[in-house]
Design a protein around this nucleic acid. Sequence first.
DNA 1: TTTAGCACTCGCTAGAGTTGAGTGCTAACA
DNA 2: TGTTAGCACTCAACTCTAGCGAGTGCTAAA
Lengths: 342, 342
Amino acid sequence: MDLKERKLKILKTLIEYYIQTGQPVGSRTITEKYGLGLSPATIRNEMAGLEELGFLEQPHISAGRIPSDKAYRYYVDKLMEITPLTPKESDILNALLSGHMDETEGVMKQIVNALSDITNCVAIAMVPKISSMNLKDIKMIKVTDNKALMILVTEKEIIKDTVLRIPDDMDQYELDMLCELLKPRLLGKRLDNLGLLAKECLAGALSNRRDILQQVMEQIRERMFVQKGTQLVLGGTSKLLDYPEYSDVNNLKLIIGMLEEEERLLGLFRGMFQDELKIVIGSENKISSARVSIVASNYDLDEDNYGTLGIIGPVRMDYSKMLAVLDYMSKNIAGMFENFFR
Amino acid sequence: MDLKERKLKILKTLIEYYIQTGQPVGSRTITEKYGLGLSPATIRNEMAGLEELGFLEQPHISAGRIPSDKAYRYYVDKLMEITPLTPKESDILNALLSGHMDETEGVMKQIVNALSDITNCVAIAMVPKISSMNLKDIKMIKVTDNKALMILVTEKEIIKDTVLRIPDDMDQYELDMLCELLKPRLLGKRLDNLGLLAKECLAGALSNRRDILQQVMEQIRERMFVQKGTQLVLGGTSKLLDYPEYSDVNNLKLIIGMLEEEERLLGLFRGMFQDELKIVIGSENKISSARVSIVASNYDLDEDNYGTLGIIGPVRMDYSKMLAVLDYMSKNIAGMFENFFR
DNA sequence: TTTAGCACTCGCTAGAGTTGAGTGCTAACA
DNA sequence: TGTTAGCACTCAACTCTAGCGAGTGCTAAA
């Protein structure tokens, strides 16, 4: 699959020009953008070759060429130069992120909006499920007659809490006892195992309040099990409407439909990282038939946990810039909302 | 503004027919749908009258008539019959809502999806800001070396908490003292006033730890102030793409843009309830120039607090059905997720 | 191997003609 | 006075045609 250098240069020029304009590119245009004293005829010959290899397509016989998905893949893997963000660009990004940082969700929203603004694509952020973290401490506080707050602290000091219903006559002392009962069996364990483990604890429990304990345990199990964990924030859908390739409503419907199905989106990104892919181009995406490309990047939360940032846009997106932006963001993100995440 | 009965019948027929088809309605069509032995010519005369009064519009001189916003308003206020959901319809709605109910957000998502599916419009749910509730109890628990959990309990026993950063050497005792200091001044007050009030408390504080206290207060102020409270869940955007009126991308962009700006949406609904409106028709909406109608309904959470359900769709929506669906939902919603809300 | 030249393709646009749904107006009728 | 039949008129939508132009593939010459 090693092409002659000239073919590659032509391919690269063509792709980059097409990314900019969205118009099929003709041989004359190539000679203008990348002269080197070759005539359109020569370029035409080379383009015919590239088409035979499956890198180029012609919408109609009398039109210029557009890159195929295969071409984008080759471009992304071999031809593209990744240039980090210039100071000017990162300034813009930072400016977009200035202003008050609120709760986690607010921060995420802001990050997503900034990403979307600078890339002109849909941006997605996922906060990791904290359920893969290990439990460091557990507390229960009686807050009203029949409600207690269960507080879970992970090793990374991220705090997760949930309200438990308790019997009116259960007091703080009894809650403390319950915690002490649970601690030796749960501390150090992963959060997503907590539910099942909690149930087992019951075996060795004090017998006089067995029924009540059981109720509470059941709730812990439920809450822990149910907690989906991964949270998804999305922004910039309307940006897509500026691209001529999405002036067709049918196409748009596929995309917006995809964006609405969180489960499918999550699956998509999960799949990408199983295959260690950062970029999915057009038809490579098997989850939806929407014609889009997806660029994703993980950001570290700590050594075991990461979240994901993603960009979804037209296939002719500026992959190099997307990678640079995502790279910059994922490196700087951890510090940005460390204080707000819990 | 009392029109002759015949005019009204024609107007009503025309609106309802237009809601179904989306096509301009001609005089012949009216005679077919609502005969009563009148000829098209007579209908034409009446329609000319209705147009003069501002109830009808003609896209072109040789087209049929379409209702104006004013006509919809009149229809909604005076002509429309509101029929409650038939058992069959409510069954469908209930079926859409079956399945596991998870956390609040999950429930909301499910409700919104069901609403969207049955109405073929965008559905929106808002959970109320609890900030209008009064504080009943406040606790602070040291959870890690430098983090404490502040727990606020409202009169309605709804619990809201937030993580505070504290100095390493601040212990549980000191936190308790802080709570005792705050309690007499904050209990019984509205949550959204808390921030400012907390700052005032400082005046009478113990002097030796003043700086640290100030930091903590500042955080409380921030967190309370910032706490947007109202949470917004939205679904069914892709449904809009099926309507011919939104095949125009520019129009679509306005709408999707509006849906993305949570603040503006919240403002819109807030405005509606200040004016005690349930329905906003087309250009009556001053927040966005997107051509849509909005139907909203409050659901009670308790006697002081309510959330909002809303439907956003094309101006020629079936207002009667929308009201019926929203009505049914808002009445049944409270029980549905009582257990999950906190 | 490159290139100039040429015939060819075909999407796009503009203009002309046709159709058809629907109107307003007028005059006649009950 | 209200209703209606009749008719001329309007105009969006569709079809058809022709011309343009960007771009191609192929051939033959440099």
